[in-house]
Amino acid sequence: MIFICGKGKEDYITGTIVPPEESSARYRKWKAENHMVMSWLLNSMTIEMGENFRYYQTAREIWDATKETYSNKDNTSAIFEIKGILHDLRRGEMTITDYFNALTRYWQQLDMLEDIKWHCPEDTQQ
Rank of each mutant, 00 (worst) to 15 (best):
V37A: 06
Y55I: 02
I85G: 00
S77G: 06
T14L: 07
R28L: 10
I2V: 11
D98I: 01
T14G: 15
T16V: 13
W63I: 03
E22W: 07
N75G: 02
N52Y: 14
G6W: 15
H35V: 03
R60K: 13
I82C: 01
H119W: 08
R60T: 06
F100R: 07
Y27A: 08
F80Y: 13
E33C: 11
G92D: 09
N52C: 14
D88P: 02
T66E: 05
K9V: 02
R54Y: 12
M49P: 01
G92V: 02
I17R: 15
C120N: 09
T76I: 14
E48T: 13
K83E: 10
C5G: 12
Y27N: 01
K67N: 15
Y99G: 00
A59F: 04
A32M: 11
G6I: 07
Y70G: 05
K29W: 09
L41Q: 10
D115K: 13
T46E: 12
V18E: 14
N34M: 06
K9F: 08
K7P: 00
N72F: 02
Y106R: 08
T97N: 09
K9Q: 12
T97Q: 14
K73E: 12
I62E: 00
I17G: 05
M36Q: 14
T97F: 09
I4K: 00
H35F: 14
Q125M: 11
I13P: 02
N34F: 05
T14A: 06
K67L: 08
A25R: 12
S77L: 07
R54W: 09
T16Y: 13
N75A: 06
I116V: 13
Q125P: 00
R54D: 12
E21M: 13
R105K: 15
L89W: 12
V18N: 08
Y27G: 03
I82T: 00
S24E: 06
Q57N: 14
I96H: 10
R54F: 13
P20W: 04
D115Q: 11
D11K: 15
M38S: 00
G50T: 01
I47K: 14
K73H: 10
R90T: 10
W30G: 02
L41K: 09
T124S: 11
F53W: 08
D11T: 13
T58W: 04
S24M: 04
D74F: 12
R28K: 14
D64P: 01
H35W: 11
D111F: 09
E81H: 12
W30L: 02
C5N: 15
A59H: 06
E122H: 10
A65K: 10
E61N: 07
W118N: 14
L110Q: 01
